Simulated scan of single mutants.
Amino acid sequence: MNPARAERDLDESIRIHAAPDRVWSLLIDPRTMTQASPELFATTRRRRGPLRAGETFVGWNRNGLALWPTVNTVTAFDIGREIAWHTRSSGAVWTYTLTADADGTVLRERRRLPDGASATARLFARVLLGGIERHTDELSEHVSATLAWIKSAAESAPGDDRPE
Rank of each mutant, 00 (worst) to 15 (best):
A119G: 10
H17Y: 09
D160I: 01
T43H: 01
L113R: 12
V23P: 12
I79Y: 05
R31M: 03
M1A: 09
D101T: 13
A66S: 06
G131D: 12
A53C: 01
A121D: 11
V106K: 10
R81T: 10
H17D: 12
V143N: 07
S156F: 05
R112W: 00
D78E: 14
A76K: 12
D11N: 14
R111N: 10
W68F: 04
S13H: 12
G64I: 14
D137A: 13
T99F: 00
L51G: 10
R8K: 14
A92L: 08
V23D: 14
T32G: 00
E82H: 02
L26R: 02
L26T: 03
A36E: 04
A6I: 09
R31A: 07
A92Y: 08
E164Y: 08
D160Y: 04
W60A: 10
T73Q: 06
S89M: 04
R162P: 04
L139R: 08
N2A: 05
R111L: 12
N2Q: 11
F124Y: 13
R48Y: 13
R81E: 11
A18Q: 08
I79V: 11
W94E: 12
G80H: 04
G159I: 03
R62G: 03
F57S: 01
A19R: 13
E164T: 15
K151F: 05
L139K: 07
H17S: 15
P114K: 14
P20K: 14
P69R: 10
D29F: 06
T105C: 01
I132N: 10
S37G: 09
V74S: 00
W60V: 13
S118P: 09
P30M: 04
I16L: 02
P30V: 15
E133Y: 14
N72V: 02
R47T: 15
D21T: 06
P30L: 07
A84M: 03
T32L: 01
S152W: 14
G49A: 07
T99Q: 05
V74M: 00
S140L: 14
Y96Q: 06
Q35R: 15
T34W: 05
S25P: 11
R126A: 12
H135S: 07
W60D: 09
W24A: 06
A157W: 02
A121K: 04
L139A: 15
I83C: 03
R112I: 03
A102H: 10
T87P: 00
T87V: 12
R62Q: 13
W60C: 08
R31W: 06
G64V: 15
R126Y: 00
T97E: 07
Y96E: 11
V143H: 07
R111M: 11
H142V: 10
A53L: 03
R122L: 13
D137G: 12
A19H: 15
S118T: 15
V143I: 08
K151A: 08
R46S: 13
G130R: 06
T87F: 07
L40E: 15
A92W: 08
S140N: 09
R134D: 14
T105I: 04
L51W: 04
Q35T: 11
E39H: 12
T87D: 01
A84I: 03
E164P: 09
N72P: 04
P50C: 04
R8S: 14
A121V: 02
L65C: 00
R162I: 06
V143M: 02
G49H: 07
A6E: 15
N2L: 10
R110V: 13
L65R: 15
H135N: 10
A4V: 10
V23Y: 04
T34D: 04
T105V: 05
A121L: 02
D103M: 11
F77T: 01
A76G: 03
